[in-house]
């Protein structure tokens, strides 16, 4: 039976892949608050399901496989799906930003861009938006939950969310405003950024995220992989304490690779009320 289930999932994936090739998509450009234009991919604008916005992880783009394939899946499930790429200070950024690049962006700018995209999607679809964030994308969504009213959201689903790990320079943080220093953040061992920008990410920790999720006016669900090494041992307990719907895919890693990808889709679809 297990073999049959895997076969069915593979067959489903193949069908989705074929359908994705014919699915319509458009690139949307919005000028952000800093004046820097950013782009997003909008799939299945005519979908009848709840509009979904999927936000990518740390320094990534909407083309990150986990994000792209999930967007395609949901578009195929008749959801209008918007996948923005945070500008991170780069006009129309299309590439993942290297750790060693200069990082002048901060979490607030990211949340601001997220808000702009939520507004755009809400206005476009005239429906509350389901926010899905992968990894650090969940950090911006939880901060968005804390800052913005829930009227434009229907549900929040956070995939592989984990508290950020940051480290200040050994020689001490720079004191001058706008002065760059090599911090360490998330998986970046060398992360040139300013003190303010660093702390905007580093200081939005587990407590802040758990509080945001606990206080959220919309349902918050968290999908984690059973084998995600980035998850701290007590993170599941904290999530459960926050009252979120916690779904764990056994054996899946941080990016839900391989067959775990479909289990992720199953869970997302379940959370969105679909049949899959």
């Amino acid at each position: 039976m297990e073999v049959r289930g895997q076969f069915e999932r593979w067959l489903l994936g193949l069908v989705l892949l074929v359908l994705s090739m014919v699915a319509t998509a458009e690139t949307v450009t919005l000028e952000m608050g800093s004046g820097v234009p950013a782009t997003a991919e909008f799939r299945n604008a005519d979908g009848s399901g709840d509009p979904v916005l999927i936000l990518h992880g740390f320094l990534q783009t909407r083309d990150f496989p986990t994000v792209r394939r999930l967007a395609e899946f949901l578009a195929d499930e008749d959801h209008p799906v918007l996948t923005p790429t945070l500008s991170l200070g780069v006009p129309k950024r299309s590439q993942s930003l290297k750790c060693e690049a200069i990082h002048t962006h901060d979490l607030d700018q990211d949340v601001d861009e997220l808000a702009r995209w939520v507004d755009w999607l809400y206005q476009r679809m005239q429906k509350p938006v389901v926010l899905i964030g992968h990894s650090a994308g969940g950090h911006a969504i939880t901060r968005y939950l804390a800052r913005y009213p829930a009227s434009r959201m229907k549900r929040v689903i956070l995939i592989s969310i984990a508290p950020p790990a940051g480290r200040t320079p050994a020689a001490g943080e720079p004191q001058g405003k706008g002065e760059l220093a090599d911090y360490a953040l998330a998986y970046c061992r060398r992360y040139p950024t300013t003190r303010g920008a660093f702390h905007s990410y580093a200081d939005w920790g587990a407590k802040q995220m758990i509080d945001a999720m606990a206080k959220a006016a919309v349902p918050v669900s968290v999908v984690i992989g059973g084998a995600d090494e980035r998850l701290e041992p007590d993170w599941r307990a904290l999530l459960q304490k926050a009252g979120v719907t916690l779904l764990e895919v056994p054996g899946a890693g941080h990016f839900f690779d391989d067959e775990h990808e479909f289990e992720l889709y199953d869970n997302i679809d379940t959370l969105l009320g679909g049949d899959a």
Binding site: G89, V90, P91, R93, S94, Q95, L97, A101, I102, T104
Partner: peptide, 9 residues
Amino acid sequence: DELYQQLAN
């Protein structure tokens, strides 16, 4: 992208 980043800022 970093070229455009430098042009923008």
